[in-house]
Nucleic acid binder design. Structure first.
Length: 785
DNA sequence: CCCGCTTACGTTTTT
DNA sequence: CGTAAGCGGG
């Protein structure tokens, strides 16, 4: 594998002669030294993929169906660019998650190793990331050009909610009149359409519109004062930067000459404007996407961005990837049958490479509890067939559905991990530590300051804070400035003033430290000097978990140790703020089944996929029943879920489901009716209960195996053998007075039982509340009467 | 200041 | 139904 003449030379000489790209690439392909069949850049690609990889200049639209080797195509295309001598720093790739960005880089690195091209060392890889992370980097560098401070913090939705809540309160709007959530949704609506506060004000006509615009304006002002940006601002401010500072835009245009955007069907207005501006000069824009997988319209994603691409760039080369490498024919046909019912889609006929497969399993279950059991049982059955848990997933429409699956996994001793829902970085104890770091970095971040000033308790109460707020408002000082001049504030006792002074000294010391030490040292110092451990760890089980979370956070900071001190803290906080749920999938090699929403599964694949809750009202969700476009999106959502499956796909729906305390009978999803019968294997309960450890006549509880719940980052339950040992108890036999043994806590006596919760006094003196079916306990002696 | 109880509210989906 | 926030009592 050697090239006597690096292609780069040929490429650039042709380039400089201004030979059009189409001719240039043709010439290159006919390079006698390297044919498409032996070149690692092209090897193993189908014709369409080769075309995509080979079309290096000008606008390119790749319509890539599910499982069509999209990532592979982008990877090879970028590798091709680099093999042609395009420097890595001229290439930008926008991906949907940080995980995808990372994988992209790794795969490009691998191909380049095979090509051993000149000037492409592995450490020179293209810039890739999500829109948010790329914009964040741009702003860190250049936001001062539009009059803002570059040490801004990023507010998450909790922070946003607090700000809006405060604004509503100040405006005298009662929560029952307008909830912060609702107001925030409106602001988000403006932002995802790229409407600034000024525009919103000038545009508003109705009373509500005017009022929303006013709230929006105040919200932006509050963010500005706190030197904070929310997620949408990262995009909006970058767009504003490009618009107001053409020279800055020109600089980036001159840097990134070859642009790639993945999941283009899910771009919103600011994202679209961002990428269009960047592409305007060189027009080397390659967008990849699938209109059938557009599922983010609720956050402003506009499917027209991809549908109209050709109109916008009439010279665009359009390529369709229609060969599916992922799923079996049956799965693909079933998914295709579902999506085909949507109107106005571009013509696309997917065909599967894998011809042999099983039918799609469709099963009706009595209720949602049963549904979770069946799902977990099927997973165990597949596991028995040798399919690892990591290669299996349960998908559902709403996060609220996750709980039952989680419980079923716990009972069955199946290790699992949940994405979405309660997020690690949104936990109180974690946010507290982060708030210290934010304050150290940027004391004008009043929200963080307020969060930690009395955490752990420093006996600085509401009255003091109210006084300080007044003082700050009167003199238009930030809270931090007031704290620094605490001696000037009236009406605060000397003792409190002392404690406040101690606090400011603490923060200043930490600031000093952050200039010379990496973020992990600062975080450790925060925990040590504030007595966080004592505060968090209160001898309860929850306290232990909280402390574990703090430890986990600390261990994450260690990854940033080898950066220069200031960069260490900023990049840590930045990555933590912009981390997505799916990004967590690749830390650790747990063999655990994944639970997540249908939205999160885009871009992933699993051997076995279970889509739960295929019912009217749930999928399609009740909120979409009245709206045609939303209904189409619900259908796409199911399509995305189905096409994640490589080998086995099962669809579940429950006859009856408890929602908000009352039962409702949902009809099976209308989407299911579009799947032809010959592709479906309709399972009855009896059929799936053929597995040994469950017969339909046996009590349900028999197959539940207790398991130990752990925190989110180490969800693996110990191992199978543990479950065997602790299986033996029959819940009915446990009542007041029963002697039990706990796997870790030792022996004890049940003091009280209510439902599945028992209060146990252990022989070592401590008393705990345990959940039957979850806690690893067995009976030693039955109740004495 | 902290704990425990009551009440009110929520379920689309996320960077 | 389950959770989170808010309130009142110790």
């Amino acid at each position: 594998m050697c090239r006597k003449f690096p292609r780069a030379t040929i490429f650039w000489s042709l380039f400089l002669k201004k030979v059009t790209q189409k001719i240039a690439t043709r010439v290159l392909l006919s390079d006698p030294l390297m044919t498409p069949d032996t070149d690692p850049i092209f090897i193993g690609l189908n014709e369409q993929q080769k075309l995509a990889v080979d079309t290096l200049k000008g606008p390119v639209l790749i319509l890539a169906g599910a499982g069509s080797g999209k990532t592979r195509t982008i990877t090879h295309r970028i590798a091709h660019l680099m093999a042609q001598g395009v420097p890595a720093w001229q290439i930008l790739a926008v991906t949907f998650t940080n995980k995808a960005a990372k994988e992209l880089k790794e795969r490009i690195g691998k191909i380049l190793k095979l090509t051993d091209s000149a000037g492409t060392e592995a450490n020179h890889l293209p810039i890739s990331g999500t829109f948010h992370s790329i914009c964040c980097r741009i702003l860190r560098r250049d936001i001062e050009q539009i009059g803002r401070n570059k040490s801004f913090v990023i507010y998450d939705s909790d922070d946003q909610q607090k700000i809006v809540g405060q604004i509503l309160k100040d405006m005298g709007i009662a929560p029952e009149e307008l909830k912060p959530r609702t107001a925030l949704a409106h602001i988000g609506g403006f932002k995802s359409e790229g409407v600034s506060a000024d525009k919103a004000r000038s545009r508003g006509t109705s009373h509500t519109e005017v009022r929303m615009a006013e709230i929006y304006t105040k919200y932006q002002k509050a963010l500005l004062e706190a030197n904070a940006l929310d997620f949408d601002d990262l995009l909006m401010e970058t767009v504003r930067l490009f618009e107001e500072r053409p020279e800055v835009l020109a600089r980036y245009q001159g840097t990134w000459k070859f642009l790639h955007v993945d999941e283009y069907q899910d771009t919103n207005n600011p994202q679209y404007r961002f990428i269009s501006m960047l592409a305007a000069q060189h027009r080397n824009l390659c967008v990849i996407g699938d209109p059938d997988q557009s599922i983010y319209s609720f956050r402003g994603a506009d499917i027209r961005n991809i549908l109209d691409f050709q109109r916008e760039y009439p010279d665009a080369v359009s390529i369709k990837l229609e060969k599916n490498y992922r799923s079996t024919q049956q799965i693909l046909d079933a998914a295709d049958a579902v999506i085909s019912a949507n109107p106005n889609r571009p013509e696309k006929k997917m065909w599967a490479e894998k011809k042999d497969g099983t039918k799609v399993a469709l099963q009706e279950v009595t209720d949602e509890r049963r549904e979770s059991e069946v799902a977990v049982k099927n997973i165990l059955a597949f596991k028995a067939q040798g399919i690892s848990l990591a290669d299996q997933v349960i998908l559902y429409r709403t996060n609220a559905q996750s709980r039952l699956f989680e419980e079923a996994c716990l009972r069955a001793g199946v290790p699992y991990r949940i994405l979405g829902g309660l997020k690690f970085y949104a936990r109180k104890e974690v946010k507290d530590v982060l708030a210290y770091l934010y304050t150290v970095l940027n004391p004008s971040d009043t929200l963080s300051l307020l969060r930690i000033i009395n955490v752990p308790s420093r006996k600085i109460g509401d009255t003091t804070m109210a006084r300080l707020q007044n003082f700050s408002n009167e003199r238009s000082l930030s809270l931090w400035q007031s704290l620094k001049h605490i001696e000037m504030v009236d009406g605060i006792s000397e003792g409190v003033k002392h404690r406040i002074a101690d606090f400011t000294v603490l923060i200043e010391n930490l600031q000093q430290l952050s200039k010379t030490a990496p973020v992990s040292a600062v975080a450790e110092s925060v925990i040590k000097r504030t007595g966080m451990e004592k505060w968090v760890r209160d001898d309860t089980e929850e306290g232990e978990t909280r402390w574990e979370n703090v430890q986990e956070l600390l261990s994450v900071t260690k990854k940033y140790d080898n950066l220069p001190p200031e960069e260490s803290i900023t990049s840590f906080l930045e990555e933590v703020a912009l981390i997505s749920e799916v990004d967590k999938l690749d830390d650790g090699n747990h063999d655990a089944v994944t639970l997540m929403t249908l939205h999160l599964c885009k871009g992933l694949e699993f051997a076995c996929v279970t889509v739960a809750g295929c019912e009217e009202g749930l999928l399609p969700h009740s909120s979409a029943l009245m709206d045609r476009q939303q209904m189409e999106e619900e259908r796409r959502l199911l399509y995305v879920g189905m096409t994640r499956a490589k080998q086995h796909l099962s669809l579940l729906h429950a006859t009856s489901r408890t929602l908000w305390g009352n039962n409702q009978n949902n009809a099976r999803s209308r989407f299911l009716d579009d799947i032809p019968l010959n592709l479906i294997d309709v399972k009855a309960e009896e059929i799936s209960s053929k597995y040994g450890w469950l017969t339909s006549s046996a009590p349900e509880k028999k197959w539940w195996k207790p398991a130990t719940p752990k925190n989110e980052f180490s969800q693996e339950t110990a191992s199978d053998d543990v479950n065997q040992d602790w299986l033996d108890h029959v819940e009915e036999e446990i009542s007041d007075g029963t002697k039990i043994e706990h796997r870790t806590l030792g022996t004890g006596t049940v003091m009280h039982r209510s439902g599945d919760i028992v209060e146990v006094r252990f022989d070592n003196g401590q008393t705990k509340r345990l959940a039957l079916g979850i806690a690893p306990i067995k009976i030693i002696a039955a109740t004495q009467h």
